[in-house]
Each structure stands twice: as structure tokens, then as C-alpha cells.
Amino acid sequence: MLPRRIYQFFLIYLLGILVLLSLKYGLQLSDYVIPGPKTLWQTALEVFPRYALDVWNTLQVALIGQVMSIVLALAIGIPGRSTTWFGNFIKAAAYNVQAYPIVAIAPIIFILLGDGFLSRLLIAAMICYFPILLTVLGVMSEPVADVEHFYRCTGRMRWQLEVKIRAFENLHKLTTVIAGSATLAMAGTIVAEFIAANAGIGYSIRIALYQSDLARILVALLLIGICLSVYQGLLEHTGSLVKKAWTGSA
């Protein structure tokens, strides 16, 4: 699964580069607009080690941010599944926070948390948590009628059991959205680094953008893509292991 994912990413990346190069040579554009293969290669040699460390730095934050967002989505989604006033209040608050553009909230985050690791983490988690929250809310609001009816009739139903039943019945949905949200965690961290940090690949891309250096950006995209493919592949693998452990089948 993992090698296939990486191979597919390389195919997409190469296709993208091919399109850019066709444009470059078709329209006779300079290296400033689209870098040529030689410039790309030289830039890659120059920045690869530094950018690899930057991507690793970003991935670490994304990973913690994703775990945070899963915890956050569960913490909001489980009480939010009920149709009580409190459940609705939590949902309204969660939806509203998501509606605000992150750049508008960023100054408040800087004031509260400074401009280092914590700000990056929080912004990454904020961007990543919403799709997980929606899935959790969807899954948790949908009763598994037969099973739940049995426990209700026997008087053994508690909220923890209700959550477990609904999670078990929708395990595939939950693991899929968690694996998919890795992309958002990475994107969220990169956005945070763009506006808040002094480290990570988002910060390096920002500098490259200031200098209109497309070659550096393309190298950064390659590394982000490889990193994300590996990360997602591992998440999917972990998801299938969890399913196997819970259900006894892959």
C-alpha cells in the first residue's frame, strides 16, 4: 500500500513538472517564471538537506496537531451528539470558530501563546479538527437502532456504551476520515508556519515566495508530498490493524 502511494505521488508530481516545463519551453519563458531542469536540480542539491529537516519539523507538529484535533473533535462531538441545549451550544461554538479566517484569529493566538510551537500546534489543530468533528457528529448522532434497543430494554445502556456501539458500527468511516485528515493537519501546520512561525517548511516556503523562487517551492512540494504519502500510508495501515483487532477481519 505504502510503495504504491509514493509511486502514485511521484507520477502526479512528475506530470505537474512536465506540464510546467512544456509551458516554459512552449512559451519560451525565463527561469524566473518557470525554472528549467538544470535550475531545479541545482536548487534541489542546495536546499534538500535543509528542507528535509524543515519538513520533518512540520510533520512532528502536524502529528501532534492531528492527535489534538482528534481529541478535540471527540470531546466536542460526543457531548454535541445530543439534542440538548448544551449539545447545540457546543455545536454552534465549534461551527463559529471554524467560520473565522485563521489569519484574523492569529494575532489573538500570538498574544495568548507567543509565536512559537504552541501557536503552530493550535492553528494546525484548528484547521484539521473540523472534518473529523463533522464525521464524529454524524456518526454519534446516528443511532444503531437494533443494538441500542436491546441495551435500552435490558436497562444497561449508558452513554459510554452508546458511544462505543456507534463508533464500532462506523469504524470504517472514522478511520478513513482520520487518515484523510492527515493532509489537513499538514496543510494546517504549513499555514500556521506561514503566518506564525520561525521554523518548518511553511516558513521556508514563505521566504522562497518573497524571493519569487519557484524552484525552491517545487523542491519543498516534492518533500511535502513524499512525507505526506508516507504518513498517510502509515495511518491507513494503522487503521486496518485497529479494524482487524476490533472486528477480527481486515
Binding site: 525565463s30 527561469d31 524566473y32 517564471v33 525554472p35 535550475t39 524571493q211 519569487s212
Partner: peptide, 10 residues
């Protein structure tokens, strides 16, 4: 900006 672009052949 101009110098950087000219350096890359713009």
C-alpha cells in the same frame, strides 16, 4: 525584485 528576475533571465 527586478535584479533577481533579470538574474534568472527575465
Amino acid at each position: 525584485q527586478v535584479i533577481r528576475a533579470v538574474a534568472k533571465g527575465a
